[in-house]
């Protein structure tokens, strides 16, 4: 698990060294400040899910700086991020760490580098619903996702599911489509084209 053993550090500094860091910075909305990292570890110390990450966020930044592209993008770190923003507000260098994690996920999905599909699938299922209805649909989402990835978990979940549907009264049918569905589709289509540029 220690990255010191698993990281395949290049013996020479690769040519694309700078470009990886600036690529990530450029793809992050707003100002990422990622180049300012001083490797203090505030992010890794603050992270509530650090124990389940193969690298701490700090180590990811070191990999990005060193230009170790595959290792950085293959990591489960961004996918374990819970978006709690503790690292972002505590970072002494004002690096927008959570947003950088989103960017890393974007690149990993685009380049199909991250192999465990659990997290990307969940996001994609979610998006699928939003792109079809304009709204999300919690029950459907959880159902589809757990059937695919956690089928063994379902028996344990049964009491909760029943509670959700009866006691909590959550709808089991998909939401009504928003009126501007066509408009939304056009916007998203254009956005996807712009993203690819």
């Amino acid at each position: 698990m220690t990255e010191l053993q698993t990281v395949d550090l290049p013996t020479t500094i690769p040519k694309h060294k700078k470009s990886l860091l600036s690529e990530v910075a450029a793809r992050t909305a707003g100002k990422s400040n990622i180049e300012m990292c001083i490797q203090c570890g505030t992010c890794g110390g603050s992270c509530p899910s650090a124990a389940d990450m193969d690298h701490t966020p700090r180590a990811i930044f070191a990999l990005l700086k060193a230009g170790v592209r595959d290792e950085a993008l293959r990591s489960n770190t961004p996918w374990m991020c819970v978006s709690c923003y503790y690292c972002t507000v505590r970072c002494p260098q004002d690096i927008h760490i959570t947003d950088v994690m989103y960017t890393l996920k974007n690149i990993a999905v685009e380049e199909k580098i991250y192999t465990d599909s659990t997290a990307p699938d969940f996001s994609k299922t979610f998006i699928n619903m939003v792109e079809n209805y304009g709204r999300s649909f919690e029950v459907g989402l959880a159902g589809i996702h757990n059937l695919k990835h956690f089928i063994g978990r379902l028996p344990g979940m049964t009491p909760m599911v029943i509670g959700m549907l009866t006691k909590k009264g959550m709808p089991i049918t998909p939401p009504k489509r928003i009126k501007g569905m066509a408009q939304l589709k056009k916007i998203l289509k254009r956005a996807k084209e712009l993203e690819a540029v």
């Binding site: 990255e3 570890g41 890794g44 110390g45 603050s46 700090r58 180590a59």
Partner: peptide, 11 residues
């Protein structure tokens, strides 16, 4: 004290 031991890479 919750901290990342950055020389180990672990929280």
């Amino acid at each position: 004290v919750q901290v990342e031991d950055t020389l180990v890479g672990k929280q």
